[in-house]
């Protein structure tokens, strides 16, 4: 029979095995998130298509038409914006849901045990499903426009996942503070709406003056989002500086985020 030992300070060597054991729960959480989001709506998943399209056209109008910024490479401006909103969405949603995971799921977590990390993993899977829908819309748009991707396109899943992982890892890191100080739950949406303008989502990284480029690239999202756009836009150069900075963030944030998350999950129910 399986033996479980409970001791203070979380000396739980089965944690990773447990996560595997509870993998179906992650899938169920994802399924719940996706189903609930579009329940009792007339067009259901259609909203996953319509909302980003509207968003893209608003941003194209502001940045491309009003501000007159230039696109990356030869891509039509709105395609470039669309290619930026998909990874940004993954990053920001991954960040928000994992940072709030202890609070939004407190009711369940106070009554049932499962490795708590299953919860943000489940949400992350739901974000993948949502973004894959946006991704197919982007492809349809590109075909209609006659702007076909090159072979680099095949690399998109790598950057797609990196955006999500980066956002989630940053969220895990913040989640432990969020349990103690709810101020973070107020700050995060605010930071994300500002962050969208400090990240090359709706404009090209080339619009940033050369001497500010390094400072600008410290933003962890810059590198992965730019790299994602690179695989959609066939004649865009790859910006190694920002990408390597983003990779460094990921390498630091994953272990740090998981460590803090695990430290918090052991007793957070006592304070939430």
């Amino acid at each position: 029979m399986r033996k479980t030992v409970i001791e203070p300070n979380g000396k739980n060597f089965q944690y990773w095995k447990d996560i595997w054991h509870y993998r179906e729960l992650a899938y169920n959480f994802a399924k719940r998130d996706v189903t609930v989001r579009y329940k009792q709506t007339r067009i259901g998943l259609g909203w996953a298509v319509i909302a980003p399209i509207i968003n893209v056209f608003v941003m194209t109008f502001i940045f491309g038409n009003l501000a007159g910024l230039s696109s990356d490479g030869s891509a039509p401006y709105y395609i470039m914006v669309y290619a930026g909103t998909i990874p940004w969405g993954l990053f920001s949603k991954g960040l928000t849901t994992s940072a709030n995971t202890f609070i939004t799921n407190a009711a369940i977590m106070k009554k049932v045990y499962f490795p708590r990390i299953i919860s943000p993993i489940g949400s992350a899977v739901a974000h993948i499903i949502d973004s894959m829908i946006s991704m197919s819309v982007l492809l349809v748009m590109m075909f209609i426009q006659g702007y076909l991707p090159s072979l680099r396109f095949l690399l998109f899943p790598v950057f797609f996942l990196l955006c999500l992982i980066l956002g989630t890892a940053l969220g895990l890191f913040l989640s432990s503070f969020n349990v103690k100080w709810r101020d973070l739950a107020q700050i995060i949406p605010f930071a994300i709406s500002i962050g969208q303008y400090l990240t090359p989502v709706a404009y090209s990284i080339d619009s940033i003056p050369e001497k500010l480029r390094l400072l600008y690239s410290i933003n962890p999202a810059t590198g992965v989002i730019n790299a994602f756009k690179w695989c959609i836009i066939k004649d865009m150069p790859f910006d190694w500086t920002s990408f390597l900075i983003a990779l460094a963030w990921i390498v630091v944030l994953i272990p740090l985020g998981i460590h803090l998350f695990r430290k918090t999950e052991r007793t957070f129910v006592d304070i939430v």
């Binding site: 029979m1 033996k3 001791e7 203070p8 052991r266």
Partner: peptide, 17 residues
């Protein structure tokens, strides 16, 4: 504590199954 929702401050629990 037995159902692992929160941790004990001290002590030890062993469970089979």
């Amino acid at each position: 504590i037995i159902s692992r929702i929160t941790e004990p401050t001290d002590g030890r629990i062993e469970m089979l199954g």
